[in-house]
């Protein structure tokens, strides 16, 4: 590993974990297989403190201003935002579909909840994703163990609180195994109220 270790600077507030920003954009001509996904995803940078986070985040385009089929990912350092990663392969994600215009605000709020360790599920959270699509935008939070219902319920309840979701918001959980099987992140999800 030739990348240098990222640590908090003097006077900065350390985060519980280091996090890495990633960006991906699907080129319409290519099929969405694993290989092309890995080719289309780029690391933006890693942060170890609250201040380093703001410095990097403030330079990024707001997700609501992105066009086309693109995603921002913020994952714990060392975890690739891919279903096949060791930390993700037994995991899954909560999905919240957002109407256009809400993505930037919800993205910031879910990030702040993750960086501030608001979910209280130990090591379970892997990262968060905002997916910009044509009709709607989608927010997801990935965790390590899809079968751990105590963890997934706690993540769902924390999401409702930190995002201030209306009680009737539909939240869907999809295991990465199911995503691999149907080669889709958001299709055929089980609806949970």
């Amino acid at each position: 590993n030739r990348r240098k270790t990222i640590t908090p600077g003097p006077g900065e507030h350390p985060l519980q974990y280091n996090y890495t920003f990633w960006y991906s954009r699907r080129t319409p001509s290519r099929p969405a297989n694993t290989q092309s996904y890995e080719q289309n995803i780029r690391q933006i940078g890693t942060v170890a403190s609250v201040e380093q986070f703001w410095k990097l985040y403030s330079h990024l385009v707001r997700p609501g201003d992105l066009t086309g089929h693109s995603d921002f990912h913020l994952f714990k350092e060392g975890i690739k935002p891919m279903w096949e990663d060791e930390a993700n392969k037994s995991g899954g994600k909560w999905i919240i579909r957002l109407r256009k215009g809400l993505a930037s605000r919800f993205w910031e709020n879910i990030i702040l909840a993750m960086l501030g360790e608001q979910f209280m599920v130990g090591e379970e959270v892997c990262g968060v994703v905002v997916s910009i699509r044509f009709q709607e935008d989608i927010l997801s939070i990935w965790n390590k163990t899809a079968s751990d219902q105590v963890t997934t319920s706690r993540i769902r309840d924390t999401l409702r609180r930190v995002l201030n979701l209306p009680p009737n918001t539909i939240m869907e959980y999809k295991t990465h195994n199911d995503s691999l099987k149907d080669n889709s992140s958001f299709r055929n999800t089980k609806i949970t109220l």
Binding site: G9, E51, G116
Partner: peptide, 21 residues
């Protein structure tokens, strides 16, 4: 071990710190 927990307000306040620019 101890966890480093920050609430939303604290994190937003840090945004205006000179270190965050």
């Amino acid at each position: 071990g101890t966890r480093i927990i920050y609430d939303r307000k604290f994190l937003l306040d840090c945004r205006s710190s000179p270190l965050a620019h």
